[in-house]
Amino acid sequence: MDANTVLLVFVAVGLDGLAGLAGGVLSERWLQRRLPALVAFAAGTLLSAVFLEVLPEAVEARGNAAFAWAFASFVALALVEWALGHHHHAAEAAAGHAHGHPHAHHHGHPGAPTLPAALLVSDALHNVGDGAAVAAAFLVSPHAGFATAFAVIVHELPQEVGDYALLRAAGWSRARSLLALGAVQLTAVVGAAGVLLGTQHLPSLQGTVLAIAGGSFLYIGAVDLLPELRRGPDSRQRVVGFLCGLLLIVGLHFAERFAGGHG
């Protein structure tokens, strides 16, 4: 295994971990203004990364079986979220609730702020998957790795802002909330290390992990994030954010293909 690939994986996972602390660093006024566009931007990057990078690479590695793994991942994530009683990625609604906006709501469970343990367990499982996806993508190619890592980091930001807001709404102090979220971020390292070690003994694991990541990213982008484009009065900001995220990954994809063709 190339040492540079391992380094890139853990740098990307480290940056993803820093995004988990964003809720306690960014100002509340800035978040209230920019979070709708950021959620939409995350939806655009995730969905374009799924269809242009993650799933095509998974199909190349695993053939048509990749679609079955992606479908299973999509269904499993839906069942997990229903079992936990809330949509983990409805970050904007969560932040609005914690910042005292009475009309904000958290999907599926109005009492979600009283369940910090369930929230952190859900976050930990999600981060394991993110770390595994980033590692599998970098094993395919640096370009696939960068695209996947960027999509993961961008959608992590509004998600973790929402988590921080929920913990604060549950009565946790700022320091305790950040410490808990920081600890949970370490589970991404477990996912990344598991893929890096596992692929040495089971090469097909790489394509399987990418397919599972594709299904989960599709669910997060289409079910959790995309509906936010229709909420609230500032729909133009959301649509612009979504298109920017979409065009960024599309631009990177075609730039890489153009460079590869000339190479």
Rank of each mutant, 00 (worst) to 15 (best):
V11I: 15
A76K: 11
L178C: 01
I220H: 03
G63R: 14
P56A: 12
L178I: 05
S204I: 07
R168Q: 04
L196S: 08
H126I: 07
H89R: 08
G111F: 01
A19E: 07
L125S: 09
P142L: 00
W82P: 00
L38T: 12
P36W: 04
A192K: 00
G245N: 03
P203A: 10
L77Q: 14
P113G: 09
D163M: 06
F67E: 04
L252K: 01
M1N: 09
V6G: 03
H87E: 15
L205V: 06
A95G: 02
G20L: 07
T199W: 05
L252I: 07
V11G: 11
G245E: 00
L186Y: 03
L79S: 04
F242Q: 01
V209G: 00
Q32S: 14
R176I: 02
A193F: 04
L167A: 07
A22N: 05
L179D: 10
L120N: 04
A104V: 11
A137Y: 03
V154T: 13
W69F: 15
R174I: 02
V39N: 03
V13Q: 06
R33Y: 12
V240K: 09
P110A: 15
A78W: 10
L218R: 01
V189K: 08
Y219W: 08
V190M: 10
L139T: 05
L246A: 02
P158N: 12
Q200F: 05
G162W: 06
L166D: 08
R29Q: 14
L225D: 07
Y164R: 15
L202Y: 14
V209D: 01
A98W: 04
H88F: 14
G63Q: 11
W172M: 05
W172D: 05
G111Q: 09
G145L: 11
A12E: 07
L247Q: 06
T187G: 11
A147V: 15
A175G: 04
L119F: 02
E53K: 05
A211R: 04
F217E: 02
T199R: 12
V223M: 13
L218S: 00
G245V: 06
W172C: 02
S173G: 03
G207N: 06
G191N: 06
A149S: 01
R29I: 08
P227G: 08
V13K: 05
H87A: 14
R34T: 13
P227H: 13
H201K: 10
W69H: 11
G198F: 05
A104L: 02
L210S: 10
H143F: 07
E57S: 15
T148K: 02
G194S: 09
A42C: 08
G215F: 00
I212N: 01
G44R: 12
T114D: 03
R62E: 13
